[in-house]
Design a protein around this nucleic acid. Structure first.
Lengths: 172, 172
DNA sequence: TTTTCCATGTAACTCGTTACATGATTTC
DNA sequence: GAAATCATGTAACGAGTTACATGGAAAA
């Protein structure tokens, strides 16, 4: 549902072809959102069948044919509905690769500290990548901003655990 | 993978039957983790076929038969591998029902504020539920602690957006 | 000239959920 | 006597991913 909302939202602003949609999301929203190429094409097909978008074929120069998608009235309606649904409810994230943290004691402290340091590096890298993401007009920034806050909270939490582990190591 | 790790981790501590595993996770880890009954049974079956757990049947009084699961040597090995994999890498969460936030401008500000207030309520409820969750020995607390931090970060972020929206409403 | 980008798809598969079925037993 | 709990499953479905195939055009 969420990926559909995303596609509808982008098409609300302007007509686009499949690759363009995928590419845009990848480039500018890739750090908060994940949409595979095949999923994009699949969803666009489906939404066409459902009457939410209409298709037209276009060619620029000698480039491959493009299927351009355009929101129908039903599609605009659909977008409004999905948007409201999405905004109105918070769905807590379960599982963010956290299960292991419930079993920290089953592993030697120094090794645990090592492994979590690797995890920390992933986090830091994600933050750096976020900062290097080209800015964007409008509400897209909300997503980026959110991701920054979320990653920083994650980092602070991880550091508090690492600290605990390291003090346990040194007191051995 | 993560749910398998969870089941293996619990079985590491003691033998348990399917319902018991499901029930334990639901009761004590339900706010951070989500495992449906049928998924639990399915995974236990699979892990038995893979040789990670052995089964034995038990009956207490007139209660229904129980299939009790016991970690094999291969299962203990598997647990250690999955645990290390899990700890070592951070996988950023994409999509937490956030897509709508990228299209906030497509909706009247006062309605947006309304919808986000509902979302806020969900968040607050989740926090309350968290506080009412029975405490637990060992590393389980790491998960709970994490969830608290995560929800609070989420709440702070949401409030900053609501504030912005409300000042926009009043300045109309 | 080899790699990357543009552009679209399909088939098979994995993971997990939904909805249903069963039946005894304890609790209200 | 009705409802909730204990205990296990299965069949169908859905969402999304992987891996693959195609083929020209631009960039290195």
């Amino acid at each position: 549902m969420e990926r559909e909302l995303l596609l509808l939202g982008l098409l609300q602003r302007q007509d686009m072809h499949g690759y363009q949609l995928y590419d845009f999301i990848e480039r500018y929203m890739g750090m908060c959102v994940d949409l595979k190429k095949s999923t994009a094409y699949y969803l666009l097909d489906k939404m066409a069948k459902d009457g939410f978008v209409s298709q037209s074929v276009e060619q620029v120069g000698n480039r491959p044919l493009r299927t351009v998608y355009h929101l129908t009235a039903a599609g605009k309606e659909r977008f409004q509905v999905l948007l409201r649904e999405n905004l109105a409810q918070y769905i807590p994230v379960r599982f963010g690769n956290l299960a292991g943290l419930a079993f920290l004691e089953e592993i030697p402290v120094d090794e645990a500290a090592d492994l979590l340091s690797q995890r920390r590096q992933d986090l830091v890298n994600a933050l750096i990548e976020l900062e290097n993401t080209p800015a964007h007009p409008g509400s897209f920034n909300n997503l980026v901003e959110h991701q920054v806050i979320y990653l920083k909270a994650e980092l602070a939490w991880l550091d508090s655990i690492l600290e605990r582990l390291e003090s346990a190591v040194s007191s051995q």
